[in-house]
Every structure is written in structure tokens, then in C-alpha cells.
């Protein structure tokens, strides 16, 4: 059975969801399934029947965070960025820096050393107490 990642990229032409490793390690393929951040490379697509799947293309209400990723150096090459943004959106609203580090530990960025990502979250105040 096809992976959710392939259905999104090939059948739905939603190429904003990226494949980095195909084994659930890098998080580049992160999407939201009913609001939860999930690696779409590990999900047989039949499993999402009846669920709501949000990809970067369908993400709403995160404009401030997306802009902050550009301004604050949260995105460099950009390949991990869609997954990183979706994982960040799924963080609990009262997350502190340690929660953020734990929450994003499944999303690997090889470019930024993560500092720019923390700055982006802080600048967008998403979650509100990011990186206090």
C-alpha cells in the first residue's frame, strides 16, 4: 500500500511535503493528522481514512510563523522547513524552550543549528511562551 507521503506528493500533487529519509528519522515529511504532527512516510494512506490531514499547502493561521522563518533565519535551504513549521504548529501552546527542543527533536535541520528556528518561534510568539 502506498505511503501517505506518496499519495500527497504524487496523487494530490502536494509537493510541499518532502522526503528526507523514508524511515521516520528526519521529519521532513511531517504533516498534521487531526492536529498531531506525524511522519507521513510511515503512514499507509488507508490509515488516514476519516481523518483530517494538513500539509504545508493547507496550513492556515501560521502566517506570522512562516514570515518569521524567513526573517529570523529559521529556513536556510528550506527542505526541512515545511515539516518543521507543521511540527512547530503542533507544539503545546504553553511550551517553553525545553518543550520546544523536545517537540522538534524528530525534525532534523542540517543548516541552522536550530538557533534560527528558535528565534523564529520566539519572534512569532508561537507558542506564546516560546523560548522564554
Amino acid at each position: 500500500m502506498k505511503r501517505l507521503l506518496d499519495v500527497l506528493r504524487e496523487d494530490c500533487a502536494l509537493t510541499g511535503t518532502k522526503e528526507g529519509c523514508g524511515e521516520g528519522e528526519c521529519g521532513a515529511c511531517t504533516v498534521l493528522i487531526d492536529g498531531q504532527a506525524v511522519n507521513s512516510c510511515l503512514v499507509p494512506f488507508a490509515q488516514v481514512a476519516g481523518s483530517s490531514v494538513t500539509t504545508i499547502e493547507g496550513l492556515t493561521g501560521a502566517e506570522a510563523l512562516q514570515s518569521a522563518f524567513i526573517r529570523e533565519g529559521g529556513a536556510q535551504c528550506g527542505i526541512c522547513t515545511p515539516g518543521m513549521i507543521l511540527a512547530a504548529v503542533a507544539l503545546p501552546k504553553d511550551a517553553d524552550l525545553q518543550d520546544i527542543r523536545r517537540g522538534l527533536a524528530g525534525n532534523i535541520c542540517r543548516c541552522t543549528g536550530y538557533e534560527g528556528i528558535y528565534r523564529s518561534l520566539r519572534a512569532a510568539a508561537i507558542p506564546a511562551r516560546a523560548a522564554d
Partner: peptide
């Protein structure tokens, strides 16, 4: 100055086209 990056927008919206896209 920290001017707005020329290459930023598509990377945060998923619109940027990498080769496999």
C-alpha cells in the same frame, strides 16, 4: 542590514520546487 531574503517565500509555503517536485 537584515533585508528580506530574496529566496525565502517559497520555502515556507511549500511552493519552492526541488528536483523531486
Amino acid at each position: 542590514q537584515n533585508v528580506l531574503r530574496k529566496e525565502g517565500r517559497g520555502k515556507v509555503t511549500g511552493a519552492a520546487k526541488y528536483v523531486d517536485d
